[in-house]
Design a protein around this nucleic acid. Structure first.
Lengths: 244, 244
DNA sequence: CGGATAGAGTGGTCTTAACCAGTTGTGCCG
DNA sequence: CGGCACAACTGGTTAAGACCACTCTATCCG
């Protein structure tokens, strides 16, 4: 029982260790006590607890005061799914999706993007604008921004079809782990209306997403506009006893 | 500068203090440094940071390494993920929330609602329409529907302030466990526009939520309209190795 | 005068060390 | 034999301090 070699935050290494540890267990089984795990792994209890907190938040583990910590009921956690596809990230099952690349090129990040991607303002950023089309009907405009160093050699073809995240993993060794996503209501402006074939000021969802890899590094910042009449977001929430 | 009297967790008292503190500030303004706040409030840095963590998760504050901690963009941000403290059901953190009850009464479910609530069409359903107001500004219209048998004796006052879900638990023994939520883009109709003090056809989010208790029984079905300029939804996604 | 640099201040991470609060099993006492 | 109390777990909260990484600014040197 030992941690991986010293890359990244200790808390994340502990979390990953626990993920492996839990992988072979049945649902509802108890893991060792926090104090035991601290001794085994050679970390302090706050660090260990921070790692467990992550896994509790994502539903992998469940704590019970005075009894112990147990593996969660359902093992795979997919917190948020978007119709019609099922997932924001998996290639949609329903309909025939295509992407039309409208823009593809690198430029210095500038102050705003630098902040979003946690890069130096002068660092190169790959900017891709693509129109997503389902069954010949325009569905969304995605504006992706990725640190150029991560994806040197990426070509427009890579983004025309299939899973972009698979390309990232297999060709560039970038392993997407988590994302924070913000959704808000908006209406289309003139350009967006034309691209999406809807009237100007048509209801739409603006989705901003920041994606991170296994080490917590930022992989992409994306701002997308989805047609309001064709797109909805579904999510499932879970609470523990303490929730007010 | 001092904390409230000693009820509840210190971390939560610090968080509430910061909420009050931040209430009078403009968007993007800096709060005092962590070390200064510790001295002022007489708490340790881990405790102070735990409180700030909550507010960062719910979008009230934004941290910038090496620069400081700042108030978030002036919007109400609601975390979709259920976090230990800033849950979906707690009144959102920023500003002073009130409810104005517009409608409150029971009637037979009818075919549509019966299906949503899994009741007989003749079963009584409590219907509540309330306008949610933040800092004197209308924010959302909520239309709640609950099986009447679950909440017999509920009065409008119960929904004017505080946590409705706490009332459910403490007074009616209903223990909320999970919810499925759907978000889509829309624009306000005439009635909604008047209530929300925005123009007709203004961008808005429609949120439908079905809530279940610990036994899987349906507790409520709610359809709400939120002002698009003041409301956003944030969620955190996690993937395991298999995600493509 | 301008650019490099050192220092002060910021948040970020981790450790050690208590003590509090539930749960459970065991053993004593009635 | 049965019930109650205590002891030994469990997770929950807070403290105090050290050190790292990043940002900004003011000063010094060319």
């Amino acid at each position: 029982m030992t941690l991986n070699t010293g890359a990244g935050l200790k808390r994340d290494r502990v979390r990953d260790f626990l993920l492996d540890f839990v992988a072979d267990m049945k649902a509802g089984e108890a893991i060792p006590s926090e104090r035991d795990l601290c001794k085994e792994l050679g970390v302090s209890r706050p660090t260990l607890r921070a790692a467990i907190d992550d896994l509790v938040r994502s539903g992998v583990l469940v704590r019970e005061h005075g009894r112990g910590t147990f593996t969660g009921p359902h093992r795979v956690t997919q917190a948020l799914a978007a119709t019609p596809s099922g997932s924001f990230y998996a290639p949609p099952a329903e309909g025939h999706w295509l992407s039309r690349i409208l823009e593809f090129g690198s430029a210095p990040a500038g102050p705003q993007l630098a902040r979003r991607l946690q890069l130096a303002p002068a660092a190169l950023v790959l900017r891709v604008v693509r129109l997503r089309v389902v069954d010949d009907e325009p569905m969304a405009i995605e504006r992706l921004h990725l640190p150029h160093v991560l994806v040197d050699g990426l070509v427009p073809d890579d983004m025309e079809s299939g899973s972009f995240y698979r390309v990232l993993r297999e060709r560039f060794g970038v392993d997407v782990r988590s994302a924070v996503q913000t959704i808000e209501a908006t209406v289309t402006d003139e350009t967006e209306a034309v691209l999406l074939s809807v009237p100007e000021h048509f209801p739409a969802l603006m989705v901003e997403r920041t994606t991170r890899d296994v080490n917590g590094g930022i992989v992409e910042f994306t701002r997308s506009i989805y047609r309001g009449d064709r797109y909805r977001v579904t999510s499932e929430l879970h609470f523990d006893a303490a929730s007010g």
